[in-house]
Simulated assay, not measured.
Amino acid sequence: MRYPLARFTSVFVLMVVLLPLGTACGVFGSDAGLVIYSGRNEGLVKPLLEKLEKAVDTKVEVRYGSSSELSAQLLEEGDKTKADLFLSQDAGALGALTKQGRLDKLPQATLDKVAASFRSSSGDWVGLSGRVRVLGYDPRQVTRPPNSVFDLVKPEWKDKVGYAPTNASFQAFVTGMRVLKGDDATREWLKGLKANGVKAYDDNLALLDAVDKGQVALGLLNHYYWYEKVAEKGANNVTAKLHYLPGGDPGALINVAGVGVLKGAKHRATAQKAVDFLLSRDAQTYFSDETKEYPLASGVKSTVPGLPPLESLKAPNVDLGKLDSLQQTLAMLREAGMV
């Protein structure tokens, strides 16, 4: 089951980062053991982290929150943080830590388990699982989906496109467009999309349902929502189809969930063992089975029926660590009247 990213008020965010989530008692991080800050939802990764605890043979304490909030918290804590490991839903949150020198270099043998495009160019974090931006479409209304997100501002798609503007993956995609095409081109596209009658949905699940029911012809999605729906309902009971955009279009961004070891980590050796466990076949298959995302460790293939091979996709060439400028993206979305 997918757990949509929550939008927290400042007071609740403070509660999230200060409460000792994932611990039985005592002060968070006070006991000997491995301390993980996790931007991946507890309902998703808790079973995997229980396996990790056994694999590294050390008590594990976990603090959960959104990736962007935890990344900001780690920057605020600096070298006084109790965290050893940051497990992020989004490459941009890891990139923010890289920029401030808060992540330690990983061994080359660990880095080499993941293709260069899915790890830090600085060598201080690696991707664990990948998600692809796609167009979901209703085949009753669309026979030939467009091959670029830039086509969505054309008159032929007026009032036919849906999106989830508050979703973290949509915002990462917009950030990727800013990196690839520049702020001016991205701002113009957002305003054109708004003027063309784009329809907003609370999350990607609601958006996919709308496409499936024919309430909207096209939707800007991540691939795994469709595969989860098919796994739940069966392919014959899902009308919507997926279109993978060609030619390195910004709408074909492959973002990753990833992991990095904090600089000065108290349990550095154990944290490294944890990273290697998360890149193991067992952990990678867990991500594939549970989230329908792409496993990224070399030699591990997806278990999802019908999922195109990762190497067959034509993603844009972008340094994922540069997807860290979320505040600028949010400001642009507000300017365009989208959030």
Score class of each variant (00 low, 15 high):
residue 289 D to W: 07
residue 66 S to P: 14
residue 24 A to I: 04
residue 111 L to I: 00
residue 315 A to D: 06
residue 49 L to Y: 11
residue 87 L to Q: 01
residue 330 L to H: 02
residue 230 V to H: 05
residue 329 T to M: 09
residue 59 K to S: 10
residue 187 R to V: 10
residue 266 K to P: 10
residue 119 R to S: 07
residue 50 E to I: 09
residue 300 V to G: 09
residue 65 G to H: 06
residue 190 L to V: 11
residue 178 R to S: 12
residue 280 S to Q: 02
residue 108 Q to L: 12
residue 62 V to T: 00
residue 178 R to Y: 03
residue 108 Q to Y: 06
residue 108 Q to M: 05
residue 150 F to E: 13
residue 324 D to A: 13
residue 180 L to M: 06
residue 164 A to G: 06
residue 211 V to T: 07
residue 77 E to H: 09
residue 17 V to M: 02
residue 29 G to E: 00
residue 308 P to H: 10
residue 51 K to A: 12
residue 320 L to F: 07
residue 328 Q to R: 07
residue 317 N to P: 09
residue 167 N to A: 14
residue 312 S to E: 11
residue 185 A to P: 04
residue 37 Y to T: 12
residue 95 G to C: 00
residue 276 D to Y: 13
residue 173 F to R: 11
residue 304 V to W: 05
residue 74 L to E: 10
residue 114 V to H: 05
residue 204 N to W: 01
residue 250 P to G: 03
residue 122 S to W: 11
residue 12 F to H: 09
residue 65 G to C: 09
residue 282 D to W: 01
residue 141 Q to T: 08
residue 225 Y to H: 14
residue 142 V to M: 12
residue 204 N to V: 02
residue 5 L to G: 15
residue 63 R to A: 03
residue 47 P to G: 07
residue 35 V to K: 02
residue 257 A to F: 13
residue 147 N to S: 14
residue 338 M to T: 09
residue 221 L to G: 00
residue 16 V to S: 08
residue 265 A to V: 09
residue 213 K to A: 11
residue 132 V to Q: 15
residue 212 D to V: 13
residue 99 K to D: 08
residue 324 D to T: 13
residue 41 N to V: 12
residue 63 R to V: 02
residue 318 V to T: 03
residue 127 G to M: 04
residue 7 R to C: 15
residue 293 E to H: 06
residue 13 V to E: 13
residue 85 L to E: 07
residue 254 I to L: 10
residue 293 E to G: 01
residue 23 T to R: 05
residue 6 A to E: 14
residue 86 F to T: 03
residue 187 R to E: 14
residue 163 Y to N: 13
residue 13 V to A: 14
residue 61 E to D: 03
residue 298 S to I: 08
residue 334 R to I: 08
residue 274 A to W: 02
residue 335 E to Y: 10
residue 20 P to L: 01
residue 278 L to C: 01
residue 318 V to D: 12
residue 334 R to W: 04
residue 13 V to L: 14
residue 106 L to R: 07
residue 70 L to R: 05
residue 2 R to W: 15
residue 19 L to G: 04
residue 169 S to R: 15
residue 21 L to E: 04
residue 16 V to I: 11
residue 218 L to R: 07
residue 154 K to Y: 08
residue 59 K to M: 07
residue 235 A to V: 10
residue 10 S to M: 14
residue 51 K to R: 13
residue 110 T to Y: 06
residue 62 V to H: 05
residue 316 P to H: 04
residue 190 L to S: 04
residue 207 L to P: 06
residue 149 V to H: 03
residue 283 A to C: 00
residue 287 F to A: 00
residue 95 G to D: 01
residue 55 A to E: 10
residue 291 T to N: 01
residue 5 L to Y: 15
residue 301 K to Q: 07
residue 278 L to H: 00
residue 16 V to A: 08
residue 37 Y to M: 03
residue 315 A to S: 07
residue 61 E to T: 04
residue 156 E to T: 12
residue 90 D to F: 05
residue 237 N to Y: 09
residue 323 L to P: 14
residue 13 V to P: 07
residue 300 V to E: 11
residue 252 A to N: 11
residue 183 D to Y: 11
residue 241 K to Y: 12
residue 123 G to C: 04
residue 74 L to A: 14
residue 200 A to G: 06
